[in-house]
Computed example of a mutant assay.
Amino acid sequence: MRSQIVAGNWKMNKNLEETEALLSELAAKLPDTQAEVIVAPTFVNLSNAVKELDGSIIQVAAQNMHFAASGAYTGEISADMLLNIGVDTVILGHSERRSLFGEDDQLLVQKVETALEKNMRIIFCFGEELEDRKSDNHFAVVERQLKNVLFGLSADKWSKIVLAYEPVWAIGTGETASPEQAQEMHAFIRKTIADAVNSGVAENVTILYGGSVKPANAKDIFSKPDVDGGLIGGASLKSDDFIDIVKAI
């Protein structure tokens, strides 16, 4: 049975004191749940987050990483640096990394390969822009993003992959794909993987929805059979909102 996951991507928010306060609130309020709960604070607060959550079921992920082991890459963080502080999950391919920092499929292939070599779990993000959706090209865009980065992997590597479908037009805009739109795309993703890899991988891979999930819509989105949870942005920065989203699954 595939995992259900609620992951909070904090992006460039929360200083050290604010991070510790939010983590303390989440750890105290988190209800019993069968879902995995993950938070991804900023790089400078990851080590403290790991310590703060020691003994909690809440896991810590990084928002990004470099593909190289070390070297002259000013400002970058390696897989070994993350593992050294107890972080073994990383978000890769987020739409903001693609659009704002020019990360393309070729670069993401290198990052995915490095993470897998280090036995890290990857939350791999992908999704279409608004113009792709309007031109009815959204399925082709999603298939291409998956094919270019992940379809070269052997079936056994997929146990370390979590997918996060994020319609870019619904991130930070207040717009949200309807539960039916989310289900339609998630079902398409699963069928595409079944055709390209095998049906076992397709059935077992966790696919998260990421696009303005809130307490008000989480239950309806999570109720769809091919939606296994969410990658949460702004709502993960408020403990009560994030807890309500966890409860919705």
Rank of each mutant, 00 (worst) to 15 (best):
L26P: 08
Q34V: 08
T19P: 08
F101N: 01
A21Y: 11
I122Y: 01
S135A: 10
E103H: 00
G71M: 03
T33W: 06
D104F: 11
Q106C: 08
T42G: 00
D136F: 11
A79G: 01
E128A: 10
M120L: 09
S99L: 10
Q145I: 12
S56F: 05
I91N: 04
S47N: 02
D54S: 15
Q145M: 14
V90A: 06
L82T: 03
E20F: 07
L92W: 05
G86R: 01
L92S: 04
N137C: 15
N64A: 01
A28S: 13
K111D: 08
Q34K: 15
T42F: 00
N45Q: 04
G86S: 02
S99V: 06
Q145N: 11
S56G: 02
E20Y: 12
R98P: 05
S95G: 05
N48L: 09
L108T: 09
D54T: 15
T74Y: 10
E143G: 15
T19G: 10
T19R: 10
G55I: 03
M81I: 02
T89K: 11
M120S: 08
T74L: 11
A68P: 06
L16N: 07
I58M: 14
L100D: 11
G55H: 04
I85R: 00
Q106R: 11
E76H: 02
G127S: 11
R97H: 12
H138M: 09
V109F: 12
Q34P: 08
D132H: 15
L82G: 01
Q59L: 11
H138C: 14
D136A: 15
S24W: 05
T89V: 00
M81G: 03
V39S: 08
H138N: 15
E129N: 13
L23Q: 13
I122E: 01
M81T: 03
M120R: 06
P31C: 03
K29D: 09
V39P: 06
Q110N: 12
A72I: 12
T74I: 12
S78K: 09
E129A: 14
R144D: 15
D88K: 12
K118F: 10
L22R: 01
I77Q: 06
E25C: 12
G102K: 00
H66L: 05
S56D: 00
D54W: 12
T19V: 12
A69Q: 12
S95Q: 00
A35F: 08
